[in-house]
């Protein structure tokens, strides 16, 4: 009956998405009268495991081997599958990040159990109801899972509250892993890191530009604004198509789905595919010279004006 979280961590720190999963897992496990387990996969987890002892779980499972020092779905599933078969958790929560959305469907398929992706709300009555955006965020779909367990759920970033920490000390258990390098079919050859758009899904403040920005250089203005506010720069599909910003910065149905505290849309009309990616933001600001642009329908604050006049003044104002 237990609830598991598959933790994500970077440089010995648990990600925000994992803290949100722990908060959600705690609610579910309390309702179900079950225990909450955090499962951490990686290598040299000593520092991390110390930080995890009061993260809110009853138990922490550490799965350590050099083969897990980088994420691959084969190594993760090879390590998790026997443990799941042995302990039979009922629900597994995974943050809906790039790696989470790779792991979760593969793990569920391997187990032949239910997978509900991208949940943004969970209600427990006699059953567990998972609500998720469907049709590119134009509708919400509430589903229940059936059949054998564990049910695998990915959680949309920033949709759930973080767990604040607990006085309770979790028991940390190391588990032996039995996987061989030959079972890992994908070989990681390298990374191409981009500066642009990194951290969009976790950002508190996002400044996005669209076709109205006119050219790539003008995004410097948005970068300056982002720097002042401690935010990240995003883009509309049109700005990405024009080659002004990389795809990693695209917000929308086919880009990133974001939910920051503040979203500032500059020169973005507000096409349904863009709104699908940002309309759950807490506060939306739109700067657009067309007063009838659909973006104003979702904006808390709108400026019907020319962004090239407004942004420089706004930047000066906020610098002060």
């Amino acid at each position: 009956m237990n609830v598991w979280i598959i933790a994500e961590h970077k440089a010995d720190i648990i990600t925000d998405g994992t803290l949100e999963a722990i908060g959600t897992g705690r609610l579910i496990s309390n309702k179900l009268n079950a225990k909450l387990f955090i499962v951490v996969l990686g290598y040299e987890l000593f520092v991390l495991s110390k930080n995890l002892s009061n993260a809110g779980a009853d138990n922490v499972y550490l799965l350590e081997t050099p083969l897990l020092s980088q994420y691959t779905s084969d190594a993760y599933i090879g390590s998790l599958f026997p443990l799941i078969k042995q302990h039979q958790p009922s629900v597994i929560l995974i943050p809906s990040t790039c790696n989470g959305r790779d792991l979760a469907p593969k793990l569920a398929a391997k187990l032949k159990t239910a997978y509900a992706s991208d949940a943004s709300k969970i209600d427990i009555d006699r059953e567990i109801f998972f609500t998720r955006p469907a049709y590119g965020g134009r509708l919400l779909s509430t589903v229940t899972c059936r059949g054998e367990k564990p049910w695998i759920i990915t959680l949309r970033p920033r949709a759930f509250g973080k767990f604040a920490g607990a006085s309770k000390i979790a028991k940390i258990e190391k588990h032996a892993i039995d996987i061989s390098s030959s079972s890992i079919r994908t070989m990681i050859k390298g990374f191409e890191r981009t500066q642009k758009g990194v951290g969009l899904t976790e950002a508190d403040i996002i400044i996005s530009g669209g076709r109205g920005m006119k050219k790539a250089e003008n995004f410097k203005m948005l970068e300056e604004l982002a720097k002042i506010l401690g935010g990240v720069v995003g883009a509309s599909g049109a700005a990405v198509d024009a080659g002004w910003m990389p795809h990693s910065a695209q917000v929308g149905q086919t880009g990133k789905v974001v939910s920051p505290k503040l979203y500032i849309a500059c020169g973005i009309s507000g096409a349904p595919q863009h709104l699908a990616g940002m309309s759950t933001s807490k506060c939306i600001v739109a700067i657009n010279k067309d007063p009838d642009a659909p973006i104003f329908k979702v904006a808390d604050y709108g400026i019907a004006g020319d962004l090239f006049e407004v942004l420089p003044i706004l930047i000066e104002e906020l610098k002060r």
């Binding site: 990040t97 790039c98 790696n99 790779d102 079919r185 994908t186 070989m187 990681i188 050859k189 390298g190 990374f191 191409e192 890191r193 981009t194 990194v198 951290g199 899904t201 990693s248």
Partner: peptide
């Protein structure tokens, strides 16, 4: 090249 949160990961299969 697979999309990851920090950019792209290059994988051979």
């Amino acid at each position: 090249a697979r999309e990851i949160d920090e950019g792209l990961e290059i994988v051979e299969v």
